[in-house]
């Protein structure tokens, strides 16, 4: 695994988090928090998947990375006096399985557009594989990120104090 690639991954995840954060209008002070958390979470997932020693599957790697994102959001949000969700959600967005979602929608559309049973089977298999992977990633991503808010309830809900 190349360190330059890892740094690039962190940088682009941070830019993506800042850009997507502005859609949900966070307080100005929360942008740096979103960027730091997204960079840490996404580069951790990148390392877990691409490191030859670890080589983890994308689903458990996403779970671990989103747990780190959740914990960081809970403990960094009091620094900027905003709810943990403000830092958490934009930081999580770069991990959304966009390509799997695209391929599952495309698979479904091709199933409908093709008549022959062989073609249908092929695209149906693509639809189910990508759809299931996408759902699993989404599920563990949201689970990993929201469980820290649930566990560290006292810190999470007094961040704006």
């Amino acid at each position: 695994m190349d360190w330059i690639d890892l740094l690039q991954d962190a940088l682009f995840a941070a830019i993506a988090a800042i850009g997507f954060a502005c859609i949900s209008r966070p307080p100005a002070g929360a942008y740096w928090c979103c960027a730091v958390i997204a960079a840490a979470g996404h580069s951790l997932r990148y390392m877990l998947i691409n490191s030859p020693e670890i080589g983890m599957h994308i689903v458990p790697a996403t779970l671990l990375a989103s747990l780190v994102v959740g914990v960081m959001a809970v403990f960094l949000s009091p620094k900027v006096r905003c709810p943990a969700e403000t830092c958490l959600f934009p930081a999580l967005l770069p991990m959304i399985p966009g390509i799997y979602a695209y391929k599952s929608v495309a698979g479904l559309a091709m199933c409908i557009l093709h008549d022959s049973p062989e073609e249908f089977d092929r695209y149906f298999s693509l639809f189910t594989f990508n759809g299931l992977t996408c759902l699993c990633i989404l599920f563990v991503m949201v689970l990993g990120a929201t469980v820290p808010i649930f566990v560290f309830k006292r810190v999470s809900f007094s961040a704006t104090r």
């Binding site: 690039q8 991954d9 682009f12 995840a13 830019i15 993506a16 988090a17 800042i18 850009g19 997507f20 502005c22 859609i23 209008r25 966070p26 307080p27 100005a28 996404h42 770069p94 966009g98 390509i99």
Partner: peptide, 23 residues
């Protein structure tokens, strides 16, 4: 909490382009 329209457009475009790079 809302940025100017131009600023928001540029940030969202940069974010989605970064997303593309991540994929």
């Amino acid at each position: 909490g809302r940025l100017s329209r131009g600023g928001e457009l540029l940030l969202v475009a940069a974010a989605n382009a970064s997303f593309c790079r991540l994929f």
